[in-house]
């Protein structure tokens, strides 16, 4: 209880309450997350249960248009699946991929950054050179190349089943240099401080110093980058899926839904692609706004 009370007394909570834009964004983000996480409970239909969908309901427009059916608030697609439900299930996949990819980037980047900063010398320059080289390529291109080429090494019949892991891996692998740079910089500062020297003098092992003493002190900026990167990872995943090198149609994310809907754009069924698109935009912008606020709130220079 003490921790909760301290949180509501803190500067961060105060600055959060003072920014209506951030509160709105946080509420929207929360709705997206809850809608995605609780999709099996909240969604009006289960679009992937063949017993529940019927081709008779295909291509229905949203409720408020002529020919709409009140059972399908945002209309249905060509197979008679409820758009609102596919969006909720799709967001689930999108968010899962984004969060898992960011966690992978953090693990990789923070680990390498700590080692580079603490060890210094040759290790440091090799790791940071690699980071530099990777940063010269746009992240989305690297993810696309890894995902497109990586999947060739997976046997054909397993490609759909392993798509989730391939895409998490490809997006996760592109994010690490940013964390590595930040953590390395912070580590260089921390490692000469007295508490680290004291730990070294009493014989704590380097691994233990890095993890138990340096790491907790460099996590602040990591949190900010991570929040903003979740938004980027959602975009990256949607782009890859849109291009057909991400999630397969059997397990669609928002990007897959948009890509499938695009085929019906010219015949007038705009809702199949526009509503997943709006969901994607809302999710990305709200996460971005929260991340921007977090960056400003945690930066003492801006107070």
């Amino acid at each position: 209880m003490d921790a909760v009370k301290r949180f509501f007394d803190s500067d961060i909570w105060w600055s959060f309450k003072r920014s209506p834009l951030t509160v709105t964004a946080a509420v929207l983000a929360l709705i997206c997350i809850l809608g995605a996480a609780l999709a099996p409970v909240l969604a009006p239909h289960n679009p992937y249960d063949l017993a529940q969908i019927s081709l008779l309901d295909s291509n229905l427009p949203p409720t408020w248009l002529d020919g709409g059916n009140p059972g399908f608030k945002l209309g249905t697609d060509q197979q008679g699946r409820d758009i609102l439900s596919t969006i909720m299930y799709g967001s689930r996949v999108s968010l899962l991929v984004a969060v898992a990819a960011v966690l992978m980037s953090i693990a990789l980047g923070v680990g390498l950054g700590l080692v580079a900063g603490y060890a210094g010398g040759r290790t440091d320059s090799v790791i940071m050179r690699l980071a530099d080289i990777q940063l010269t390529f746009p992240a989305i291109l690297v993810a696309l190349l890894i995902s497109g080429i990586g999947r060739q090494f997976v046997p054909r019949d397993l490609q759909d089943a392993l798509a989730l892991y391939v895409i998490i891996f490809s997006i996760g692998l592109t994010g690490w240099p940013q964390y590595a740079r930040t953590v390395r910089g912070a580590t260089l500062v921390e490692k000469n401080k007295e508490y680290v020297q004291a730990a070294r003098v009493i014989g704590v092992s380097p691994a233990s110093i890095m993890v138990r003493h340096v790491l907790p002190n460099v996590l602040g900026p990591v949190l900010v980058i991570a929040t903003l990167n979740v938004a980027n990872a959602i975009i990256a995943e949607a782009t890859l899926s849109f291009l057909g090198v991400g999630m397969p149609p059997t397990q669609p994310s928002l990007g897959t839904l948009i890509s499938e809907g695009q085929n019906f754009l010219l015949s007038g069924e705009w809702w199949i692609t526009v509503f997943p698109g709006i969901a994607l935009i809302v999710m990305v912008i709200s996460v971005n706004l929260v991340g921007d606020w977090l960056r400003d709130a945690l930066n003492p220079k801006l107070r």
Partner: peptide, 11 residues
């Protein structure tokens, strides 16, 4: 800046 490129194209 926060909109994905392909979505702008579709819109």
């Amino acid at each position: 800046v926060s909109l994905p490129n392909f979505l702008i194209g579709i819109l």
